[in-house]
């Protein structure tokens, strides 16, 4: 059993209303575990050597859907778009990347508390140990949080049903600062109306653990700061225009040219059967362009929304 062979590096209990910034090195596993059950854990993650690279819920949601789980990655924001962590194990398989962290504003506006445990402030306080500011807290990956999207398009939170020992194992694909926090929502159903402790462990991954990670594509477009036109981190709060700024947008100007095709009667009939007149009216060219690129997507795109394909073929 690979798990039995793992070397334990660190173990701690996070008390309700707290969080902890943890250095997790590439090849180590961060385990987030229910100590007694039914507790949501909010999570931020930064590249340990460059805090400007951080986990991006939007990217992760695009690649893996609303409830990322075992076999999925936590990705960093564009233009880095690196796999930061791999979900090696998930005993519950209910996590959320739809909802933002709860914040003080929520508890004051909805419940009348101007001071109340909340994920933003807990996260900020834990990250402060590493010099990060409240503005550096990013969108939260919410472990064990049960959410649904209703037919009217609104996302809703439901209760969870997790037990002591339920856990998620996150294998670090790079050195990261990982910050789990015990979600402070005690008056919401997120953690079934009570705050409970959470157990955190860090292990060295075994060879078997490492072998379980699918290959991740490496793209030219995954940029590093040395490729940025402005690689220097801005150190002032005021925004002022750079008088020397010259825009360098890629592939501009966008220039169109016309391609003319001839359709015989049979092709014309096919076109008329499938042209989206509801969208394009009498514009045959726009309707044909839609048909062409829809065909191209269906024939050649391996993953939805331009998500990178992984070797497991799991990207959805």
């Amino acid at each position: 059993m690979a798990e039995m062979d793992r070397k334990l590096v660190e173990e701690r209990i996070l008390q309700p209303g707290t969080g902890k910034a943890l250095e997790v090195r590439k090849g180590q596993i961060l385990r987030i575990e229910q100590a007694s059950g039914n507790q949501c854990v909010d999570f931020n993650c930064f590249n340990l050597h460059d805090y400007k690279e951080f986990m991006h819920c939007g990217r992760t949601r695009t690649v893996h859907g609303f409830n990322p789980t075992e076999g999925d990655f936590l990705w960093s924001a564009p233009p880095r778009e690196n796999a930061m962590l791999y979900i090696l194990k998930d005993t519950v398989k209910r996590n959320d990347v739809l909802f933002p962290r709860c914040s003080a504003f929520l508890y004051e506006s909805a419940y009348g508390f101007d001071v109340h445990t909340n994920c933003h402030d807990i996260q900020a306080e834990a990250q402060r140990e590493y010099g990060l500011t409240p503005d550096d807290v990013h969108d939260s990956f919410n472990f064990f949080m049960c959410t649904e999207v209703a037919m009217d398009g609104r996302a809703t939170i439901t209760r969870q049903n997790t037990k002591a020992g339920d856990h998620v194992d996150l294998l670090a694909m790079m050195d990261v600062l990982a910050i789990p926090n015990v979600c402070g929502a005690d008056v919401m159903r997120t953690s079934n109306f009570a705050l409970k402790p959470v157990k955190i462990s860090i292990f060295e991954a075994t060879e078997e653990d490492l072998a379980a990670v699918p290959d991740v594509p490496r793209m030219k477009s995954q940029r590093v700061p040395s490729q940025f036109r402005n690689a220097t981190i801005k150190a002032t709060r005021e925004l002022t225009a750079d008088p020397g700024y010259v825009p360098e947008f890629a592939n501009t100007p966008i220039v169109e040219e016309e391609i003319v095709i001839e359709l015989d009667a049979a092709e014309r009939a096919l076109f008329e059967d499938h042209a989206r007149r509801d969208l394009y009216g009498d514009d045959d060219g726009a309707a044909f362009r839609d048909i062409f690129f829809t065909w191209w997507e269906e024939r050649f795109l391996n993953a939805h929304s331009g998500a990178p394909s992984t070797a497991s073929g799991k990207a959805t």
Binding site: N251, E256, L263, G285, R289, W296
Partner: peptide, 26 residues
């Protein structure tokens, strides 16, 4: 126009340089 009068009909499709590049790579 969506006329089917002629035996052959012509459609002009406007494509930008990136779209054409994708077509050429295909």
């Amino acid at each position: 126009m969506s006329s089917m009068d002629a035996a052959k009909s012509r459609i002009s499709i406007r494509l930008n340089q990136q779209q054409l590049e994708l077509i050429d790579r295909t």
